[in-house]
Structures are given as structure tokens and as C-alpha cells.
Computed example of a mutant assay.
Amino acid sequence: MSSKVCKNCGSSDIDVDQARGDAVCMTCGSVLEDNIIVSEVEFVETGGGGSSAVGQFVSTDAGGINPSFGDNHFSGVGRESRAQTLQRARLNINTLGHQLQMNKHCLDTALNFYKMALMKHLTSGRKNSHVVAACLYLVCRTEGTPHMLLDLSDILQVNVYMLGRTFLVLSRELCINAPAIGTHSPASAGFTLLHSAE
């Protein structure tokens, strides 16, 4: 948490991550600060024989002149990458959601779930299509739509258990209470299969 306030929505729920070098509004997802730069670079050898750069982060809040890397070639890279990731996620959510005939409210909610997953780094190491499907299924569960995880699995042509694992991680890590499906609904068969695989 920070004493900063988002210029876009006015929220004071700001996630400042010194390691990533950014400050992000947790309400609307705006990147408030992403030009924290490295003032001193040192390369060290890692255990696997590779190398990594280490240095000290210098925030724009610290004042003074900010040193730059070469010809400012890297300026704004984080924002562009994040914007592109969210744009691609929105397109994928809309495409998959329209195939399931989901309304705009559900698609917007799924995108918000995706933004939350992105903030908590839950998208790293996972296929984007699996995260998108899990976000849509979270909406199906929270909104009570008649869609099953098997529907998403069929459209994407991926194993239902792989999607189920991603769904369970997202619902747990994002603290989203996905209501259980009724025992007599056809969707419960897919969810029962999912839990029996664990």
C-alpha cells in the first residue's frame, strides 16, 4: 500500500513493487510509475552458469536527475508490454466469450479477473489461453451461468484437468469464492471429474 492516489480513478489502493520497479492501481489497473531505473549495473554469474544483471533501483520520487540507459531505447517498455498483454487478453476473452454467447458484463468481469491475475503474477508460466479460460469460468461460477469447464475445454481443444488446475489456482490466489455447482446440474459432472483428478 502507498500514500499515492491514482490519477485515473482516484483510488488509494496502489501496489508499489520495488523489485519490479512499478506502482500500479489495484482498482483500475493503471500503471502510475514504471520508469524506475537502474543507476548502477553489475553482472553476476548464476548457479547454472548463466549471468544476470543486478543494480540499485532509483525511483522518480527520489528527485534529482534520472540517469538513462544509452539513448533511452528502453523507456516505456513495461507499459507497452502490459498494454499489449491486456489488449491481447481482452481480444481472447471476447472471442472465447462470444463463442459461449456470454454477455458484455461477463466479458468485462473476466477481463477484471485477468487483470488481477496479472497483478499477482499468476499469468507467468501459464498458457494465456488457459488463464483466459479460467477467468471466463470464474465468471461462469460467480454469475451462475450454465457453462461447464468442459465447454471451454472443447472449444480450446485442451485437457479439462489442465484448465481445472489453472481455475483452482486463480480462484484460491485471487480469493474469489466460486460457488459450488448444484449436485443435480449437468455441470457438476465436469467439476466432480476435476476434483477427483487431484
Rank of each mutant, 00 (worst) to 15 (best):
Q157D: 09
D17A: 02
F167R: 04
D154H: 13
F113N: 09
G190F: 00
G164I: 00
I14W: 02
S11L: 05
S30N: 12
G29N: 09
C6M: 02
G78R: 08
D13G: 05
N112E: 15
F69Q: 12
S171G: 07
A110Q: 03
L122T: 00
F113K: 06
F113I: 08
F57T: 14
G78K: 12
I155N: 01
G48N: 10
I65K: 04
Q157M: 06
L122Q: 04
L170C: 01
L138Y: 04
L138M: 14
P179E: 11
T145A: 05
G55V: 09
R88I: 07
G144M: 12
A23H: 02
I36D: 03
V24A: 03
A19S: 11
E42H: 13
K115P: 02
I65F: 04
M119E: 08
S68H: 10
A197V: 09
I37V: 08
L91S: 10
I37T: 08
L118P: 03
M1D: 07
T60P: 02
V44Q: 12
K104I: 09
A89W: 00
F74M: 15
A187W: 04
S185A: 08
K7C: 08
Q84Y: 03
L194I: 11
D151E: 06
A19T: 13
M26L: 10
S3Q: 11
G190M: 01
G47Y: 03
S12F: 07
V54E: 03
M116W: 02
S81G: 05
C106T: 14
G97W: 00
E42D: 10
I181H: 00
C9Q: 14
H121L: 11
N103I: 12
L150K: 10
V158C: 04
G144E: 03
V139L: 01
L91R: 12
P186H: 07
S12C: 06
A110Y: 01
E40K: 15
V58Q: 01
